[in-house]
Simulated assay, not measured.
Amino acid sequence: MSKLLYTLLLFFVFNNNLYSQIIYTDISDVTPNASYTLDLNNDTIIDFIIQYGGSSDTIGVICHPQNSNAYAGTIMAGNYLPWALAASSTICPSTATWYDTNNPGTLGWGTNLGYWVGETDKYLALKLIVGTNTYYGWARIDLVATSSSFTLKDYAYQSTPNSCILAGQTNLRNPENTNKSSALIYPNPMITSTTLKSINPLYNATLTLYNSNGQTVKQVTNILGYDIKILRENLQSGLYFIHLSDGNNMLAVEKLQISDGYK
Results as ranks from 00 to 15, higher is better:
residue 2 S to H: 12
residue 5 L to R: 12
residue 5 L to E: 14
residue 8 L to P: 08
residue 9 L to S: 13
residue 12 F to D: 08
residue 14 F to A: 15
residue 14 F to L: 15
residue 28 S to W: 11
residue 29 D to T: 15
residue 35 S to K: 13
residue 36 Y to V: 04
residue 37 T to K: 12
residue 37 T to I: 11
residue 38 L to H: 02
residue 39 D to T: 12
residue 39 D to R: 08
residue 42 N to D: 15
residue 48 F to V: 03
residue 50 I to G: 07
residue 53 G to V: 05
residue 53 G to N: 10
residue 66 Q to P: 09
residue 71 Y to L: 06
residue 77 A to G: 10
residue 78 G to E: 00
residue 81 L to F: 04
residue 83 W to H: 02
residue 91 I to R: 03
residue 94 S to T: 15
residue 100 D to P: 00
residue 100 D to Y: 06
residue 101 T to C: 13
residue 104 P to E: 05
residue 106 T to E: 09
residue 108 G to A: 15
residue 111 T to D: 04
residue 115 Y to H: 14
residue 117 V to S: 03
residue 119 E to R: 00
residue 119 E to K: 03
residue 124 L to T: 01
residue 124 L to W: 02
residue 125 A to C: 11
residue 126 L to K: 01
residue 132 T to P: 10
residue 138 W to V: 03
residue 139 A to E: 05
residue 140 R to H: 06
residue 143 L to F: 09
residue 143 L to R: 04
residue 148 S to F: 08
residue 158 Q to L: 06
residue 160 T to F: 11
residue 160 T to R: 09
residue 164 C to W: 04
residue 169 Q to D: 09
residue 171 N to G: 11
residue 175 P to S: 13
residue 178 T to I: 13
residue 187 P to E: 08
residue 191 I to E: 07
residue 191 I to P: 00
residue 191 I to V: 14
residue 199 I to G: 01
residue 205 A to W: 04
residue 206 T to L: 03
residue 209 L to M: 12
residue 213 N to A: 11
residue 214 G to P: 05
residue 215 Q to F: 12
residue 222 N to T: 13
residue 227 D to Y: 03
residue 230 I to M: 07
residue 231 L to F: 13
residue 237 S to C: 11
residue 237 S to P: 05
residue 239 L to M: 14
residue 247 G to R: 13
residue 248 N to G: 10
residue 248 N to F: 12
residue 259 S to Y: 09
residue 260 D to N: 14
residue 261 G to V: 08
residue 262 Y to R: 00
